[in-house]
Design a protein around this nucleic acid. Structure first.
Length: 421
DNA sequence: TCTGGGGTCCTAGGACCC
DNA sequence: TCTGGGGTCCTAGGACCC
């Protein structure tokens, strides 16, 4: 039996999500904006065709937006997360094994599908997902994960209508490798791409012709794995179970410049709260917590960046304990006189709740603090985010950004349900 | 005026041990 | 000028991903 990997990828995912319920933008160019409505993070095909670049700051392409009447939305992750779960559920129903790789992508193990039925199988999956969720997907199939990625890209580029491409012969493999630019290969980023082009390596095929020892020396084991995968030797397996996060972080750019420590305290305690919630959600505790603050690197004003990492005596997931550390840390790194633009909190050294070893030399963890956290989780799960929060998180939150054009949470909030008249 | 957020993995180098 | 060797653990930084 031959090994077959599929890669299912939602086309222009965020833009496609906005189109499910908002019929008025179905045939219009659409872009989605990042936090603070700062830059472009997703584009519909029409917007791509009009030349809207990925990652561009909104203000730099305002003329293009106005000229072509491009619709833009603030990002609505509640909606995208829910639609993503529906797509993944669909794939799970249809495919033998699924690895959810990102919010809009999943690897599939299709080894049990007979070789000559792969194409038809994928076409059917694509049709069903479109019918069930209204999200268009593309599927690439090949003997390795890296090649499935390549096949997916090739399908989107050359077989847009069908949206499926299978690399199932040496001939097709060589043709696809030769037609794929080196910078479009999964795992080759900006730096590596630039270097390789300087070496005369312009396509995926050129890369596979390099001497193995050179690849290993220059790109380490990661590059070597990619090299082998592109030659058809599978090195990356499908991982079906969801692994626990090793780092959890929460950070935001501010909507306005912030100068006072009081406002930074509101922000970082809110971020600490989010990290603690995520920890509890995966039944884990953290050994260390970091907090950082920074000015705006794009401005000409005086710059400041600093962060601090702190250890807990006993790993914790208590919001109160994490907040205390973060507030203490903030006091150490805060310097008055700067315009702060961003702050973040991260927790690391994450261990399962049941793997924690006590420490003879420190007092037992504060049971009440843990109870408070658990209770807050319950209330917030039932009545919505931040129904209860800590006083230090504040209420005016001048640091919070704008999301001036956010769409309704059609699928997760009763009051936002689509009304049909 | 306005420039995202959340992750992973690998390597090099320092601290420390015997 | 010479100033061990081998090992582990930790952290910072760089590269990549969506």
């Amino acid at each position: 039996m031959s090994k077959w990997f599929g890669l299912a990828d939602c086309n222009n995912f965020y833009a496609s999500c906005e189109r499910i319920f908002n019929l008025s933008v179905r045939d219009k160019p659409v872009v989605i904006l990042s936090n603070n409505d700062g830059c472009i993070i997703s584009r519909s095909q029409e917007a791509k065709d009009l030349g809207v670049p990925m990652g561009a700051a909104l203000h730099t392409i305002k003329p293009l937006i106005n000229k072509h009447k491009i619709e833009f939305f603030s990002s609505n992750y509640t909606l995208y997360g829910d639609i993503s779960a529906r797509v993944m559920n669909g794939l799970n129903d249809l495919c033998p094994a699924v690895e959810v790789y990102s919010i809009d992508e999943a690897f599939l193990d299709l080894s049990i599908i007979p070789d000559d039925e792969l194409f038809e199988f994928a076409v059917n999956v694509k049709k069903k997902i479109a019918k069930w969720t209204k999200i268009p997907i593309s599927i690439g199939i090949a003997p390795t994960k890296s090649l499935a990625k390549l096949a997916n890209r090739y399908a989107k580029k050359n077989f847009k209508e069908v949206g499926v491409f299978v690399i199932d012969s040496e001939e097709i493999l060589l043709k696809t490798l030769k037609e794929t630019a080196i910078e479009d290969v999964w795992g080759i980023g900006r730096k590596h791409g630039k270097f390789l082009k300087g070496e005369g390596v312009n396509t995926a095929y050129d890369f596979t012709q390099l001497p193995e020892h050179f690849v290993q020396k220059r790109f380490s084991i990661v590059g070597l794995r990619l090299y082998k995968e592109l030659k058809g030797q599978s090195c990356l397996n499908l991982t079906e179970f969801i692994e626990k996060k090793k780092v959890i972080l929460h950070s935001r750019s501010f909507g306005k410049y912030v100068q006072l420590i009081k406002d930074l305290e509101e922000a970082v305690t809110t971020f600490a709260n989010k990290c603690a919630e995520k920890l509890r959600l995966q039944d884990c505790c953290a050994c260390t917590v970091s907090v950082y603050i920074r000015t705006n690197p794009f401005s000409n004003k005086p710059q400041y960046y600093n962060g601090i990492t702190m250890n807990f005596d006993i790993p914790t997931s208590s919001t109160l304990e994490i907040q205390r550390k973060v507030l203490w840390g903030l006091k150490q790194i805060f310097v008055q006189g700067y315009d702060y633009k961003k702050a973040g909190v991260s927790v690391m050294g994450i261990v399962g709740k049941n793997e924690i070893q006590g420490n003879l030399f420190v007092p037992e963890p504060d049971i009440n603090a843990q109870k408070i956290s658990t209770l807050m989780d319950k209330i917030n799960a039932k009545f919505g985010k931040e129904t209860v929060k800590f006083a230090i998180q504040g209420t005016n939150n001048i640091w919070k950004g704008n999301a001036s054009k956010i769409s309704p949470k059609y699928t997760t909030l009763w009051k936002d349900l689509l009304q049909v008249e």
